[in-house]
Design a binder for these strands. Structure first.
Lengths: 205, 205
DNA sequence: TATACTTGTTACTACACAGTAACATTGTCT
DNA sequence: AGACAATGTTACTGTGTAGTAACAAGTATA
């Protein structure tokens, strides 16, 4: 047995670790090469195994992409809950959410979620993930509305602003480089500053 | 000869019209179904022709995607030049650019450009389009810098803001529906208002 | 140490689909 | 009319790759 993962451990544990390694590697590969360009042979090779072995851990190729997307959306879900819990005003909640969200979209699964797009998913899988996406979207809108009520956010069209926010933040997955100068925290700060203050100079208050 | 396109005309003209119809239809199909999921058979069927006929107008499948992308980038190029010519301050140039850009990313080729991503393009084709993309990016940065100098734009990190802007605007391609309530002009206005003023309420000047 | 389960391999099948060859029809120009 | 080019069709080839069958070896447990 080639040792995919580092040390000796219980069987069930070993299996789980291998499953995770498979998904991580797959996500990386998808992000480098694209889902359709990535063959299971490539994935197997990078894991140091042969193709049929993969099927011991996964149902099929589509399932890999599905799992990667699901994992990313779970992380987003968590970020959402944390934001709801920690923030007081609408704007503060948004700040918390956004700061964590940047970490998600600069990480393997998050990048995969965004770059692959849902075109690649099967009908059922797409449907299965739809709930996550819509609640994510909906919650941000609610945060904005809350902010408008509590005065932390200026009057705006929440639907529109949500689109703009997700656009800007999701797009990070397209240009972010792990070895680049920009760290996720800095990106979050710059983006927040822009969205909070706007481009037009503010008169001293 | 099945009449792809409406009326009787000169041969060369007819040929060009068919070429355009092919690309348009292809772009629509790619946007609905995804590049890899779209077969040439599907494209041929929608055009009311058989598959081999397509090869009379195009080199291969990759070439179709390349042309769609190229056309969209050409439009962006034009928008850029118009903005440079019409705007006076940095902010005004940005306004002009952005307003036109929304039209591009809500139209078949523009949507195709963004949804397909460059993963699907061949190495050479991707390289061939890189110039367009980089000048687009670069020009926006220059506009921002100009705006900072002329005072129309508050101090900011141009690189970062460019990313945020392209993110928000490119993302429109993901959610825009031609038959929806929102018209491109309204989207442009809302987005501009957000990016200019920011989310935090401004004190009356 | 025998037995059964887990994990992996080699060798293969199935199939979708891009691209081509050879043939048919229509239109244009002298 | 006759010739030649443009446009299209039917029938086929080739290839890449997802997924499977059958077999092998390692590992835990009685």
């Amino acid at each position: 047995m080639a040792s995919w993962t580092k040390e000796i451990q219980g069987r069930e544990e070993q299996r789980q670790l291998k499953g995770q390694a498979l998904l991580r590697t797959a996500a990386r590969l998808f992000n480098e090469t694209g889902f359709h360009q990535t063959t299971l042979e490539m994935l197997a090779q990078r894991l140091g195994v042969t193709k049929p072995t993969l099927y011991y851990y996964i149902k099929n190729k589509d399932d890999i992409l599905f799992e990667c997307n699901r994992l990313a959306l779970m992380q987003a879900q968590e970020a959402l809950e944390k934001a709801q819990a920690e923030g007081t005003t609408g704007l503060e909640k948004l700040r918390v959410l956004v700061t964590r969200y940047v970490h998600i979209v600069t990480e393997d699964f998050g990048i995969c979620l965004i770059l692959s797009g849902d075109q690649a998913l099967t009908q059922e899988n797409r449907q299965a993930l739809r709930t996550f996406r819509t609640t994510l979207d909906h919650t941000v809108r609610v945060m904005l509305e809350e902010g408008m009520r509590d005065g932390s956010i200026a009057p705006c069209n929440p639907k529109m602003v949500t689109f703009a926010l997700f656009g800007a933040f999701n797009w990070i997955a397209h240009w972010y480089k792990d070895d680049g100068e920009l760290k996720p925290e800095e990106i979050a700060e710059h983006f927040l500053s822009l969205f909070e203050n706007g481009l037009v100079p503010r008169t001293k208050s």
